[in-house]
């Protein structure tokens, strides 16, 4: 599904150049559940942004389904984001003025469906996440876990190939964390999604099939060299 070779990404911070990613090679298989773990500020989110086509690498190739994301035009990237990538954020990123139902519908806007079809699909996505009685609520009227489930419904309503989640449980308490991770895992299993999940949390990471640890802008563990029997990351690398 993904082939990343020699990915480097830098940012300018004032006069200083920050290499957020410094030579990442990574393959992600179709239908895989990959956890990305690593200390803070080491480039996990940056990697996810590149996987989701939200930004382009400074150097290297990031091939998704045979297409080099770094070379696609902005419009084609927007199409990919609309159709193939579902994004879930740490702070949910729901539109505060729209209801749960309407928030989910925003993901269908690029498809120009009939309003009825759009409503029906959004409602179904919310039902799938157990939110049938919260459809008309504004984000501010929902708990953190419920908000994140609305965000997951928004990411999945369009049946994407990949679900990219950046610390989806980072703002949640333990019980809610378990509930959300359980929901994600269930969806991954049932729908044959590719799930890439960035997390600080070793408990969450351990649920994945494979763990890639990022440190200093490089993936130090993971891919083929990681033993398939154990999912434990190197404790030293997880600060």
């Amino acid at each position: 599904m993904y082939e990343l070779t020699g990915i480097r990404k830098y940012f300018h911070r004032g006069a200083e150049t920050v290499w957020a990613l410094d030579g990442v090679d990574l393959d992600i298989a179709d239908g895989e559940f990959l956890a990305i773990q690593g200390p803070t500020g080491q480039g996990k989110s940056t990697l996810l942004v590149l996987l989701g086509g939200l930004d382009r690498p400074t150097e290297g190739r990031i091939v998704f389904d045979g297409r080099d994301l770094g070379r696609l035009a902005e419009l084609q990237l927007a199409e990919l984001r609309a159709a193939d990538f579902g994004f879930v954020f740490q702070s949910f990123n729901l539109i505060p003025t729209l209801t749960a139902q309407e928030n989910v519908e925003t993901a269908l806007v690029p498809f120009h469906l009939s309003p009825d079809e759009r409503r029906r699909r959004a409602h179904q996505a919310l039902v799938d996440l157990g939110l049938e009685d919260r459809v008309g609520h504004l984000p501010s009227e929902l708990s953190g876990g419920q908000q994140q489930r609305v965000a997951i419904a928004r990411a999945l309503v369009k049946d994407p190939k990949v679900l990219l989640a950046d610390e989806p449980t980072g703002n949640l308490d333990e019980d809610t964390r378990d509930e959300i991770v359980g929901a994600l895992e269930g969806l991954w299993r049932n729908r044959g999604l590719t799930l890439v999940l960035v997390t600080h949390d070793s408990w969450v990471a351990r649920r994945a099939e494979r763990i890639a640890v990022i440190k200093g802008g490089r993936v130090n563990y993971g891919d083929a060299s990681w033993p398939s029997t154990g999912r434990e990351p190197d404790p030293e690398l997880v600060a």
């Binding site: 994004f87 993901a107 690029p110």
Partner: peptide, 16 residues
């Protein structure tokens, strides 16, 4: 910024 960034991230075109 984050709201519009999110909409772009979920596939809204700049035009929209």
């Amino acid at each position: 910024v984050r709201e519009f960034g999110t909409l772009k991230a979920i596939g809204w075109r700049t035009r929209r």
